[in-house]
Design a protein around this nucleic acid. Sequence first.
DNA 1: TTGCATATGTCGAACTACTAGGTGTAATAT
DNA 2: ATATTACACCTAGTAGTTCGACATATGCAA
Lengths: 113, 113
Amino acid sequence: MNSNDPKTEFLKGTLDMLVLKVVALGPIHGYAISQRIQQISRDLFQIQQGSLYPALHRLEDRGWLQAEWRNTETGREAKFYTLTRKGRKQLEAEVRNWEQISDAVALILRTAE
Amino acid sequence: MNSNDPKTEFLKGTLDMLVLKVVALGPIHGYAISQRIQQISRDLFQIQQGSLYPALHRLEDRGWLQAEWRNTETGREAKFYTLTRKGRKQLEAEVRNWEQISDAVALILRTAE
DNA sequence: TTGCATATGTCGAACTACTAGGTGTAATAT
DNA sequence: ATATTACACCTAGTAGTTCGACATATGCAA
């Protein structure tokens, strides 16, 4: 997320959910996570490395992700992340939350008077 | 927004937009803004005073809100805020942003594989 | 051999929201 | 009469997140 880009001002707090969601699609390494998020979001979200890696360590510390060094298809070493059971529950909770929140925001934005 | 409440984890960055939106409905003082947000959001958002007043000063410093001391209906002194022209533009920009962001988040959350 | 894409990481700065405290007035309950 | 609650404003310090900038190292293509 590029701070020069006003489009990312709202992302605070959603990064963890997005990362958990992408990891939930299957084991994946950090660098690929940011590419995947960028791709799916049609270039709207560009996760900076200074945000990504701290986030991954945070999620691992909380027991939501599990890391393992493996080789990529191109023969490089990379840290592959998988979702733990706790991580899956956390993701579900965050998604429910997001939906409530975005509904409530929509309510306020639609208020006319 | 109560930090103990996981429901508010996503709110970072949206407070300013919500405040601008509520002020856009008509001149209103700070205390009433938080009540209004709580009411419209059906108690989901509860803005703490330690978040509200710094936010109002921030928005005023940026020229998006204008403050004026007036009396409330009950005869008390209160600081009424109105949206400036800059503030209206800012609100429009933030709403467009929010919509893009929430669409992109929805895209990612709906990704199955 | 120079540079780019891949891949991981840290550090310090900036910003935001919260808790916890504070002031003072008016209305209501005891 | 007095205590408490609701109204209405405010700040200081703290914790957490994200960012830009930087650092490292490998593989591949021009």
